[in-house]
Design a binder for these strands. Sequence first.
DNA 1: TTAGACTTGACTTAAAAAGGTCAAATTTAG
DNA 2: CTAAATTTGACCTTTTTAAGTCAAGTCTAA
Lengths: 100, 100
Amino acid sequence: MTLGQKIKELRESKGMLQRQLAAKLEIGDGFLSKVEHDQKALKREHLNSISKIFDYPLEELESLWIATRIYELVKDEQSALNALKVAEEQIKYGKAHAKV
Amino acid sequence: MTLGQKIKELRESKGMLQRQLAAKLEIGDGFLSKVEHDQKALKREHLNSISKIFDYPLEELESLWIATRIYELVKDEQSALNALKVAEEQIKYGKAHAKV
DNA sequence: TTAGACTTGACTTAAAAAGGTCAAATTTAG
DNA sequence: CTAAATTTGACCTTTTTAAGTCAAGTCTAA
């Protein structure tokens, strides 16, 4: 599940049109279409609005939002999965040693 | 292990000075110092040179290089690890459904 | 078949990131 | 101590990315 897919799912579950959701987010509907296809990224602030409009947990949306950015970064890499593992270790190590 | 740490390790294992390695890479030694501390990123092409200079597998260096970029992207995120998991799923799913 | 919904491609502009340099300050080894 | 090695901060220019818009084209249902 990607962020775009989730947004489309939420929107359709409320029988809302792209035009209507786009208006609430104050963006054009062409842009929202691309967002739903993960061709463009929303601003992070928009996640707050979406969370409220659909009463859906913000943390979930944020994870999807970050994941999309990671995916964009590594999608053409043959060693994408391996790099993810390495990054995971770095994060775990970093957390354990962070000098606040 | 980060890319910077690995480069420093390789360099020192050959008793090479920053100045010497920097010259081979055609960059300044101030810049190399930052690279070894992961404060700046090398160009990807530089990995080829490093691989040859130290006879160290390029794929390993590339994984570290990508991992560093992922780390930069998520290091301040509370849900970094979760997002990584989500991205991993997206990659696996993407690979299975890629329309070459 | 035609209106409304959606998708797509081309384009824009400001902001940020890439990829450094250089000199001053600091650290380390002898 | 002191000289070489390293680190750091400030700065710079060029390239990319972010975050859209808009109009034309395509789909879909009635």
